[in-house]
Computed example of a mutant assay.
Amino acid sequence: MSGEARSAGPGIALAVLVGVSVTVLLGVYGKVHDPQFFSVNVAGFSSPVAVKSWLGSVAVLLAIGQVVSALIMYGKAGIAAPSWIGGVHAWAGRLAVLVSVPVAVHCLYALGFQDTTTRVLAHSLFGCFFYGIFVTKMLLLTRKGLPGWVVPVAGGLTFTGLTGLWLTSSLWFFQNNGLTF
């Protein structure tokens, strides 16, 4: 193991530990909190679940933009990276998290951590995991001298968590209700 990789190890471990702590704290809060059954609604939408489904879909579309821009930035898309791609990548990520926050607030405050069905349990686990890995990724981005694989793996896990959330919530909602607003 190189000296640089050895010196990055404690920073990686700390970021992962903080992310795991966020994951567990969200799950515990969601489980012990008494659900209020209402939190977020937006005028023009038929229900809070419709709002969640559409905001979740916007977050996933922005995250897909992040994956594409990351592939371009890392030279994996077969095209030269334009100078503006890093800014697009960062802003797509910021916006994805921003539109996911009302969804998370609704899920935690109105519904809590639930395990009534396999889908609902998976959704609760993906929600806690997504915010934990997001925190981990943000902490890793501030570290210098990380091995080249660390940030892409953290980004891929963040995308996986968000995709799992979308598959267990928004997709399910649209399949059962149509493209309802």
Rank of each mutant, 00 (worst) to 15 (best):
V22L: 03
G127L: 04
V20W: 13
A122I: 13
G132L: 00
V51Y: 14
Y131C: 05
T180E: 09
C107N: 06
F126L: 05
W149S: 03
K144C: 02
G11E: 00
V151F: 10
V18G: 07
F113E: 04
I85Y: 04
Q66D: 06
V88Q: 08
G178R: 11
L111H: 13
S83W: 09
G19L: 00
V151L: 13
S124T: 09
G148I: 01
V32E: 14
L55C: 10
T118F: 09
V150T: 02
I64D: 04
S53Y: 07
S7P: 03
P48D: 13
V151A: 10
G178S: 12
A154L: 06
A81P: 03
A13K: 10
K137M: 12
G132E: 01
I79E: 05
I85N: 02
G127F: 04
V151Q: 08
V58R: 07
G56V: 06
A43F: 15
F38T: 12
T160K: 11
G78A: 02
L95S: 15
T158Q: 13
C107P: 01
P152N: 02
A8R: 00
V67A: 12
K31P: 06
Q114M: 13
A70S: 15
G156T: 08
T168G: 02
T136D: 01
F181K: 07
L125Y: 05
S39A: 13
V101W: 03
R143D: 01
R94T: 11
L171F: 10
T23E: 10
T118H: 08
M73W: 03
P152W: 03
Q175E: 14
M1D: 11
G19S: 00
R94K: 15
L167R: 11
G19Y: 01
H33N: 11
L71G: 02
A8G: 01
L179Q: 11
L25A: 10
F130D: 03
S169K: 04
V58N: 07
L98Y: 14
L62F: 12
R6D: 15
L141V: 10
W54T: 11
T180A: 13
H123G: 05
I72K: 01
A77F: 04
A110S: 05
F159E: 11
G65D: 09
L26Q: 03
R94F: 15
